[in-house]
Amino acid sequence: MSGPIREDARCRALLLELSRYLDGELTSARCREIQQHIKSCTCCATMAVRLRETMDACRAANEQQLPGDVRERAHARIKAQLRG
């Protein structure tokens, strides 16, 4: 691997597969090829790290809680529904 310019086409193709790679959806043979490429290509390695960080950030960020007043209105409506 000689750098981002000569590897441009290959890197572009790999970018399209990076999410599937990170999600574990590729064959083990393809995974090995990508791992091999990532070891020697800073651009793709950086992108892989950033995508992984983005995925991790999303997974850690889902703490949106139901506001108290919305919860109370929903409860009241549920109770009313249950009473018929």
Binding site: G24, E25, L26, I38, T42, A45, T46, V49
Partner: peptide, 15 residues
């Protein structure tokens, strides 16, 4: 930004 291993995870592993 130097290359470092980024391993795949399995489908459905997201919490």
């Amino acid at each position: 930004t130097k290359p470092r291993p980024v391993n795949p995870v399995s489908e459905g592993a997201a919490p």
